[in-house]
Design a protein around this nucleic acid. Structure first.
Length: 573
RNA sequence: UGGGGGAUCGUCUAGCGGCAGGACUGCGGACUCUGACUCCGCCAACCAAGGUUCGAAUCCUUGUCCCCCAGCCA
């Protein structure tokens, strides 16, 4: 079968995403800056730290920043905020680039690293020292914390705060030359130890770290803190609108202090609320913990909210973009319901996924009046609402497998599938009537359904025009092939597993049924050749993808992306 | 008790002194060879109290609640 997953086939460089249809407070601010002539064009940036894999929360930021650049005809830079070599890795850098591209965005030639500016940042640090605005502090990390004061009490000044510019410069240069061990001294901005804003109580600018950096190798043994590097990096790149999350709101005065002290261009920083999604966690620390401790199989486990995980599960870039567009941007702490994301994938997959039939939990059905040894083929629509997707042949024979839950010996009111004496349509095939049930003599379990078929209903429609309410999917027992299906469900069983603060409780909320592996599934023959990564709707079940990692030629493994809406089981039956 | 933010249907989000709109969810119905899709309809909100105004979600005052900040993390 053809692979309809064309999201991966679009050229990366030319990937075009659709313009936003809605406005938000950031766009209002940009409109204002453009209207007043403050800027003629805009430059945004997506600045990840390469210390983990991107997740759906990053996707929100990516869609926001690249989307703004797209809609205003500006640019969006990809910049790695790689100021802490102790935590960063090339593996993450590659993965992040790949995920941004996969999502459909392109930074063109604007790929940067904070580490590109280490030289400039260092020169500026010397400048601040010379201006008496920075000093080398010999206090230990512990002491610095004690001297910082508390939220309600001012801090106290370090005894090293008033060293001369000459002494500071000498010490700082010796820090840089590797004369001192890690942690023995830091460079601090001389601002105000009594500031009500903790960020302004002489923040650390540089620390000694004898670590090899993914980009600069062993060139440096002192590294700038994020707070010292970020604002200037934006400034150097001429970022017009520096969009970040809420927790950096009270860092803004610090960024502005550095920019002002240096007398360089100041971008406008705008903060928005980060994404929270129900039934999952979003913090890198927690995701890393799930990976390290084996609660999931890796960063790309289909249950992870990571881009690589969602991609492997079968989410399309289009669906994720639609989601980011739909949830909007604001400053309220909010929790988006998982149902919104699920609706976005269904909406996208409903259009693009060809249909197929597979029986997850097979129950044998024998059609008593169907000739032994006879095989027929029926034409099935690949998409009921899109004739351009064509048809396929599905083989039929005397013995078929149907979904166990489609038969009930004693059906409740409103159940219109199969039951003793009742008729049901085998999709695209025949109308059959249940004539009996065969049970295991010891367990009493139903092992087989006996039916007769109506030869005049070939293709599924009764010659006499009678209505048959129920239509069920099936596979020919003699033609079907077995395949593994992985039924994924929400990773956590509570809505806000991440809201319990630093507690360890969150892992107790993991959903024990987030993955059910079924090896007894029977699929229609055509599915055997399904390409890795391809997407299908298994009729009446849900949307599935062929796992790109564990499938082998002729033996596809199916991941359930999301179920179909189901107003029957939901009705409580 | 310091500083910085935020409060609009169940959940998100528009609104910028002039009819509180949209999406998701929920409920009801139509259609149906997927109990899917699609279509139609319904339920559902301005944190509170004052004030300004012909008119307030919007402006002012006071209060309440929630989030963030005391890393040599970002």
């Amino acid at each position: 079968m053809a692979n309809p997953n064309n999201s991966k086939d679009k050229g990366q460089a030319g990937a075009a995403t659709e313009p936003s249809q809605t406005t938000n407070f950031i766009r209002t601010m940009i409109d204002e800056d453009l209207r007043t002539g403050k800027h003629r064009t805009i430059v945004t940036r997506f600045p990840p730290e390469p210390n983990g894999y991107l997740h759906i929360g990053h996707a929100k930021s990516i869609c926001l920043n690249f989307g703004l650049a797209r809609d205003y005809g500006g640019r969006c830079h990809l910049r790695f905020d790689d100021t802490n070599p102790a935590k960063e890795d090339m593996e993450y850098i590659d993965s992040i680039k790949d995920s941004v591209h996969w999502l459909g965005f392109d930074w063109g030639g604007d790929l940067y690293n904070a580490s590109d500016y280490f030289g400039q940042l260092y020169a500026w640090a010397e400048e601040l020292i010379q201006k008496g605005k920075a000093y080398v502090d010999d206090l230990t990390a512990e002491q610095i914390r004690e001297y910082r004061g508390t939220l309600t009490e001012p801090g106290t000044e370090s005894p090293f705060r008033d060293r001369s510019a000459e002494e500071n410069l000498d010490l700082f240069r010796r820090m840089r030359s590797g004369e001192f061990p890690d942690g023995c001294r830091v460079l601090r901005a001389k601002i105000d130890m009594a500031s009500p804003n903790m960020n302004l109580r002489d923040p650390v600018m540089y620390r000694i770290l004898h670590a090899s950096h993914p980009h600069t190798g062993d060139e440096w043994c002192i590294y700038p803190m994020y707070d010292y590097a970020h604002g200037q990096s934006d400034s150097i790149e001429g970022i017009t609108h520096s969009i970040c999350t809420l927790e950096f709101e009270d860092h803004r005065p610090l960024y502005e202090w550095f920019l002002d002290a240096l007398g360089i261009y100041a971008p406008r920083q705008i903060e928005f609320a980060r994404l929270n999604l129900t039934y999952t966690v979003m913090s890198k620390r927690k995701l890393l913990e799930l990976v390290r401790e084996g609660y999931v199989t890796g960063w790309d486990d289909p249950r992870m909210p990571t881009i690589v995980g969602m991609r492997r599960r079968g989410y399309t870039a289009e669906a994720i973009r639609a989601f980011c567009e739909r949830i909007g941007v604001g400053k309220n702490d909010s929790w988006i319901e998982m149902g919104v994301l699920e609706d976005c994938v269904r909406e996208d997959l409903n259009q693009r996924a060809p249909r197929a039939m597979a029986v997850l939990n097979p129950l044998r059905m024998v059609i008593e009046n169907y000739p032994e040894g006879l095989h027929e083929e029926f034409d099935a629509l690949n998409h009921p609402n899109d004739p351009s997707m064509g048809t396929r042949k599905v083989p039929f024979s005397r013995e078929v497998s149907i979904e166990a839950e489609d038969f009930l010996e004693d059906p409740p009111k409103g159940f219109f599938r199969l039951a003793p004496g009742r008729e049901v349509r085998l999709r695209y095939a025949y109308i059959v009537k249940c004539t009996g049930v065969v049970k295991d003599e010891v367990t009493g379990e139903i092992v087989e359904i006996r039916c007769t078929y109506d030869p005049d209903s070939r293709g599924g429609s009764a010659a006499d025009g009678r209505k048959v309410k129920g239509t069920i999917h099936w596979v020919s027992a003699t033609h079907a092939f077995p395949a593994q299906v992985r039924l994924y469900d929400r990773l956590f069983s509570v809505q806000q597993p991440g809201s319990d603060k630093g507690g360890a409780d969150w892992k107790a909320c993991l959903n024990p049924d987030s993955l059910k592996i079924i090896d007894t599934c029977r699929m229609e023959p055509g599915l055997a050749q399904a390409a890795p990564g391809s997407l299908f709707q298994l009729e009446r079940q849900g949307y599935f993808s062929v796992d790109a990692k564990d499938s082998t030629p002729g033996a596809p493994v199916f991941n359930r992306i999301v179920t179909l809406r189901d107003s029957w089981t939901k009705s409580g039956a």
